[in-house]
């Protein structure tokens, strides 16, 4: 099975440097920044184990069972960015992303396997309905419930053909107030309310910009090309980017524990 590997480096800077950094990155990449505005809704498994044993007795010997673990799902979409896009809004495309904990090891960049899938709205229904309740009911039935959400805005550059440089700021959103939660909801309605009700124009964004430089490659037997060659190129491109913009900000590998998406389930 093909799998998506993301090779990344990160950096952060203060808002006062933004214009300077954008103009330098435009020069380095030879392109104007593509602006980005996204909504992310995080879903967590609504699970607790039942029964207290952590081992199963088989044939007299107690065998410990691997802990039940699962990951959060990031459900995201692009938001319309200007009046024109808002008026001619297309049904949003929701993408589900499940990252894994970054690999440990001695590679000079961070390596993380990522699973992604796009939700396909049904073609049978009115184009103005965005199928949002179908998606959230499905997640609810998978035993996933709304955990938190945030907005992300920023800019994207493409470096050397394959490396993406994303510069973004996030705005964590407050949980819904009691009066905002629809009556009689079965869990999925909280997510629906959040998805429809957040306002990026009045959102407060945190005071730091984060740089995420990454290369995504697809590896596996069904894919084109040699896997180790692809890995080599991905690392080379990121390292050459790091060297080229060395004075501007320092691209580094973050603590892998911070990017751990797993949720431990109690047994």
């Amino acid at each position: 099975m093909a799998s998506l590997q993301q090779f990344s480096l990160y950096a952060a800077f203060a808002p006062s440097k933004l214009q300077h950094i954008l103009s330098i990155l435009s020069a380095v990449t030879g392109m104007r920044p593509i602006s980005l505005l996204q909504q992310h809704i995080l879903f967590s498994p609504s699970i607790s184990g039942h029964g207290s044993s952590t081992s199963v007795v088989t044939g007299g010997a107690a065998v410990s069972v691997a802990p039940l673990e699962s990951s959060r799902i990031d459900v995201s979409r692009d938001l319309p960015q200007n009046l024109d896009e808002k008026e001619n809004a297309k049904p949003p495309e929701w993408t589900l992303t499940i990252p894994t904990i970054p690999e440990s090891g001695k590679r000079p960049v961070q390596v993380q396997a990522i699973s992604k899938t796009k939700f396909r709205p049904s073609e049978e229904i009115d184009q103005n309905v965005d199928n949002i309740s179908t998606l959230f009911r499905f997640l609810r039935a998978l035993d996933y419930v709304y955990a938190y959400d945030y907005l992300e805005r920023g800019y994207i550059f493409v470096y050397n053909g394959i490396a993406t440089i994303k510069i973004s700021q996030i705005s964590p959103q407050l949980p819904l107030q009691l009066h905002e939660i629809p009556m009689g909801g079965d869990g999925d309605q909280v997510a629906s309310t959040v998805a429809r009700g957040r306002d990026p124009d009045n959102a407060k964004f945190v005071n730091t910009w984060v740089v995420h430089a990454y290369v995504e490659i697809v590896t596996g037997p069904e894919t084109v090309g040699d896997d180790s060659e692809k890995v080599k190129i991905a690392i080379e491109r990121l390292e050459s980017l790091k060297a080229e913009i060395g004075g501007l900000f320092e691209l580094e590998i973050p603590d892998r524990a911070l990017l751990d998406p797993r949720v431990q389930m109690r047994r």
Binding site: M1, S3, S70, S71, L96, I98, S115, K116, T117, K118, F119, R120, P121, S122, T134, L135, F138, L142
Partner: peptide, 15 residues
């Protein structure tokens, strides 16, 4: 719910 082929490995491996 309809998803693209990526859902195959999400249910089969991640969940």
């Amino acid at each position: 719910a309809v998803f693209d082929k990526g859902m195959d490995s999400i249910i089969g491996a991640k969940l």
